[in-house]
């Protein structure tokens, strides 16, 4: 379970990215964060994966305050969180397979398991023919899918996805969402930050809208 209690994030000199965010996300839930550019979606995801620390407030994952975790414990937590970044963070001089494998290598998975998992994911995302392609040579849409594949490769318990369909056509968007739903059905908590209403318009899951760093609405769950 993810708990955010009165979480704020400010950047110097006086930019307030998030303000008093309080929300609980259950284990195994699929949760949408929506809002315009600059609303604070990406900042919220960065706080959830402990890439950044909150200026105020408390963030707990599974009952553990993540801003107090350090060293080995923090690394172990991060291994359980898969993140698909908006800027991809791909190693553009490595192959698609190597990029996806990296998240499994850090948890010392066996090479044959890594190879099989990489092939499965590439097939599910329609990238089988890009296995040995250097990621710097892929299109934006393909890079985005590789990022997603890397995020879910290690079978994390929590998957954070930032604008997963920004560079994708309708068919590929469908494919990506299908994969995320599959992970969700397998028990993973999924948090998706997006402004693409086609992926959350008819959803039965909770949708939280951010505006200027604050929660504007939260539908399908707790009232504000």
């Amino acid at each position: 379970m993810i708990e955010l209690i009165k979480v704020s994030k400010a950047y110097s000199p006086d930019v307030i990215a998030l303000q008093n965010i309080s929300v609980s996300i259950d284990s195994g839930e699929m949760f949408f964060i929506i809002g315009m550019s600059g609303a604070g979606k990406t900042t919220l995801l960065k706080l959830l994966c402990s890439m950044e620390l909150p200026s105020n407030g408390l963030i707990e994952i599974g009952g553990h305050p993540i801003n107090q975790l350090k060293g080995h414990k923090l690394a172990k937590l991060r291994q359980k969180i898969g993140v698909a970044y908006q800027d991809f963070k791909l190693l553009t001089d490595r192959t698609t397979a190597e990029n996806i494998a990296i998240s499994m290598e850090v948890s010392y998975k066996k090479p044959q398991i890594i190879r099989k998992r990489v092939r499965d994911l590439l097939e599910q995302l329609g990238l089988s023919d890009k296995h040995d392609t250097i990621t710097g040579e892929l299109s934006r849409g393909e890079q985005q899918r590789v990022t997603l594949a890397r995020a879910i490769a290690n079978s994390p318990t929590m998957i954070l996805v930032d604008e997963p369909t920004g560079n994708l056509d309708a068919v590929t968007t469908e494919r990506v969402m299908k994969l995320l739903k599959k992970c969700n059905k397998a028990g993973a908590t999924i948090v998706i930050a997006t402004h693409d209403d086609s992926i959350y318009r008819h959803t039965t899951h909770r949708v939280m809208e951010l505006r200027k760093g604050s929660i504007h609405s939260l539908s399908g769950g707790l009232s504000l």
């Binding site: 172990k76 963070k89 190693l91 850090v106 290690n154």
Partner: peptide, 13 residues
């Protein structure tokens, strides 16, 4: 870039 990514995917010290 690689070291930052390694940290983010949970590589230990």
């Amino acid at each position: 870039a690689e070291l930052e990514l390694l940290r983010l995917v949970g590589a230990t010290n």
